[in-house]
Design a protein around this nucleic acid. Structure first.
Length: 262
DNA sequence: TGTGATGTTGAATG
DNA sequence: GCATTCAACATCAC
């Protein structure tokens, strides 16, 4: 689930269900996803503190604490935030949970344990050291064009490269390529300026629409590709059959012919 | 029962 | 340094 629109939605959940509420108790069920602190340290650092805000860059969400340290939440492939009150509603793969003084609970669910929870003392320094690119919804068209200049790799590889551009994942990369009618293996050095501007524009449109709809796929526009994104399906309006290939190291779906290889 | 999965990293190769 | 490929991480769902 968690690409930029999903994480932007988790940010809203976090703002609503965690920010401003003193933490009464912290329970760790599985410390595997805690990257730079032990379960004991995690509990000790958070108990009694209050989150006062959030920051998001790409797929990385940070909760700011009242001592101005940050807690990084990266959701991996299957991470999720689940607010609840009744213990019976705890998510199945809850790795830790925060109890607030008002009695509410926020659980962190993650079946595959690819999430990364990191304690961050100095956020700007941390972001620099991680070499995270600009957020895909914040980047300007000019900066985006500069990013592409001089690059020779594949279009999809760029979209997925979090050091170049933070936020686009496998699903939305395929969506952008489909709507731009460009084959995901197209070479960046073969793209015209018009192509590049089109990619930028579609990226903004797709991501912001998805954010507006809270990453709730069933409310996405009918002509979006995700619902055809399956091997062998007839694409929309008979444009061709959906194919599957490994591109930029990831399973990629596209419609040959409809999406031009540049 | 095997296969694939919305992510990231680090190593190896060219 | 750049581009690319691959394995690893850990587990679930179909």
């Amino acid at each position: 689930m968690p690409e930029l629109p999903e994480v932007a939605t988790y940010q809203k959940v976090f703002e609503r269900h965690a920010v401003g509420k003193p933490i009464r108790e912290v329970v760790v069920n599985d410390a595997k996803i805690l990257r730079n602190l032990t379960a004991e340290q995690f509990v000790e650092q958070l108990t009694g503190r209050t989150f006062i805000g959030t920051y998001r860059r790409g797929k990385f969400l940070f909760g700011e604490l009242d001592n101005h340290a940050y807690l990084q939440l990266h959701f991996g492939m299957t991470g999720d935030l689940v607010p609840y009150q009744d213990p019976a509603d705890a998510p199945r793969f809850e790795r830790f949970r925060l109890h607030f003084t008002d009695g509410s609970v926020l659980g962190f669910d993650d079946s595959r344990k690819f999430s990364h929870i990191v304690w961050v003392d100095d956020l700007p320094a941390y972001l620099l050291s991680r070499k995270l690119g600009p957020d895909a919804l914040e980047i300007s068209e000019d900066t985006f064009l500069q990013l592409l200049a001089g690059r020779k790799g594949q279009l999809k590889a760029l979209l997925l490269d979090q050091h170049a551009l933070a936020g686009v994942g496998n699903l939305y990369a395929d969506e952008i390529c489909f709507q731009a009618r460009l084959h995901p293996a197209s070479r960046l050095d073969g793209l015209s300026d018009e192509h590049k501007r089109l990619i930028f524009q579609l990226m903004q449109e797709i991501l912001s629409s998805a954010v507006e709809r809270l990453a709730y796929y069933r409310e996405y526009p009918e002509n979006w590709f995700w619902q055809w994104r399956q091997l062998g399906r007839p694409g929309p309006e008979g444009i061709g059959v959906v194919q599957r290939a490994t591109i930029a190291g990831r399973t990629t779906y596209f419609v040959e012919g409809w999406q031009v290889l540049v």
